[in-house]
Design a protein around this nucleic acid. Sequence first.
DNA 1: TTTT
DNA 2: TTTT
Lengths: 180, 180, 180, 180
Amino acid sequence: MAGSVNKVILIGNLGRDPEIRSMQSGQRVANLNIATSESWKDRTSGERRDKTEWHRVVIFNDRLVDVAEKFLRKGSKVYLEGQLQTRKWTDPSGVEKYTTEIVLQNFRGELTMLDGRNDGQGGMGDSAGGGYGGDSDSNFGGGGYGGGFGGGASSPSQGGGASSGGSGMSADDLDDEIPF
Amino acid sequence: MAGSVNKVILIGNLGRDPEIRSMQSGQRVANLNIATSESWKDRTSGERRDKTEWHRVVIFNDRLVDVAEKFLRKGSKVYLEGQLQTRKWTDPSGVEKYTTEIVLQNFRGELTMLDGRNDGQGGMGDSAGGGYGGDSDSNFGGGGYGGGFGGGASSPSQGGGASSGGSGMSADDLDDEIPF
Amino acid sequence: MAGSVNKVILIGNLGRDPEIRSMQSGQRVANLNIATSESWKDRTSGERRDKTEWHRVVIFNDRLVDVAEKFLRKGSKVYLEGQLQTRKWTDPSGVEKYTTEIVLQNFRGELTMLDGRNDGQGGMGDSAGGGYGGDSDSNFGGGGYGGGFGGGASSPSQGGGASSGGSGMSADDLDDEIPF
Amino acid sequence: MAGSVNKVILIGNLGRDPEIRSMQSGQRVANLNIATSESWKDRTSGERRDKTEWHRVVIFNDRLVDVAEKFLRKGSKVYLEGQLQTRKWTDPSGVEKYTTEIVLQNFRGELTMLDGRNDGQGGMGDSAGGGYGGDSDSNFGGGGYGGGFGGGASSPSQGGGASSGGSGMSADDLDDEIPF
DNA sequence: TTTT
DNA sequence: TTTT
């Protein structure tokens, strides 16, 4: 058919570092775990409540796999656009399962880094007046030509340890709650 | 956390009539099965291929439940906006399962009918002259005031040409049943 | 910079046939006039009111220019995604003006036909049980590989006169109200 | 008509502080200037090029006006959703002009702060240790119940690392000023 | 006029 | 299970 649209837009934080693997065909694939959260004031209790939703993201777009590998880390905040896809699989004990993922394919999908939170050792804090620190927001369009990384000075330092820093989401707190 | 976005946009067709049920709280819920499809030309074989994706949609928004019940049927084409949500449940044999759904909640979510398949009795497919007849596209906004059915001056031209008529209810017939 | 998103999503009807022109570089460009409408119940008067908004759409994507030329006509309903862009220009009397357009560029932008309303003479009504008539919904992805037209039987007849048929929007009614 | 969608999604930065004014009816209105930028590698020269687009945003939604007033400043990064609207007006010399704006209305529109530039006194840029400090991303849904500020348990971890601190107000400080 |  |  046609005349249909299947689009997911997420802004959220990576719950852990991207996982990169290669398929037998040589095609590289990146998997991201993205958390989105909502908070609201409960109408009866008046308490503030919140809920985190976890999303499985699969990137087949070569350029975006590179971007994920080089620039995204646990805690990174991203904007992304992809498509919903549900896969059927059989677990080791023979049970049929379904998994729904957000897929960024070759000429579909966008990925934009919204912070510079990929500096492991917190290079941002090393000087007074730091301001926008290691921030290197970048827009990685899904197209063949486009988007791109600002190169040069905006290249972030990645190295090192667990994601520290004043990240919006405390990935560490959530780490062992990730349901997949 | 916050600063996050969780949004799904679909245009697709209902695979079957909406299922409406009531929760113990009295809250009514509608379930939709939406198909989206893509077709593309295979790069190696040159053949045209296509793939259909099925989506589970759950509507908690009262007004939109009414709209689904009154106007949507198997085959209806809709535009909708909702949020991704994954539920964990245990099947009868004790196996844990996850189901991902697109949720349209009380002040979130939009639903717009993109065709006029709003014939209550579903006799459309088996009678002559049926089909695309009484076109009555409608926009049901998620907001409190909102959206609405194109009554009055904006009433779509149904009469006239060969493509009118059909056994479907017209927008005018339904006008005073509109749930807002 | 980067880390930014500029996206417009419209579902609406063409107020007139697409205008196709060629630039000196040979690049072809299509211009569309799209109407979107809202209706709502006035809170004080209780009357139903509505408002139509007109959008200028410019297509630089070669494939999508072809699609617009071949398949879109006055009254056609489309889904499209593009970017906002404001141009400054000077009118004949030397006054500076700004025009904001929705641009569909080479690897950005999507265009999906949501009806088959491009049959000028209403071929849909010519047989009993017509059902989905000349409907030929199609999804034209912005990507290099993708989307595509279902070919074969779904190719619509275009010919002829002013847009008749049971179209959701009565383009004729609105024709002389188009503000550009 | 109906069955139409008119939606703009932007992620960008404020070019200046929000402008808040009151209409004769008492309705408050906020105006934002938002910049979105793209960068790409020129295919012929191989140079990196970029282009900034400026957007006029008008907020009629009361809650979101408050949010803009309290939390947004020149440089703030936001996610927003609104509708395109073109206004006709006559300039002092009698020339007719059109202005296209992105409108966030009462039950339409979303606004999400994507950084923590919510320091009331604007002293951030000129004091040591400023910058990305008190990260307090917030999601201000357009709905009636909704969105909210990440207080309580979901409070972002500000303390700790080198990148914390700063002169900005923290989310907690502002908690009881939140306009919903 | 923003941001990197 | 839809739609073309």
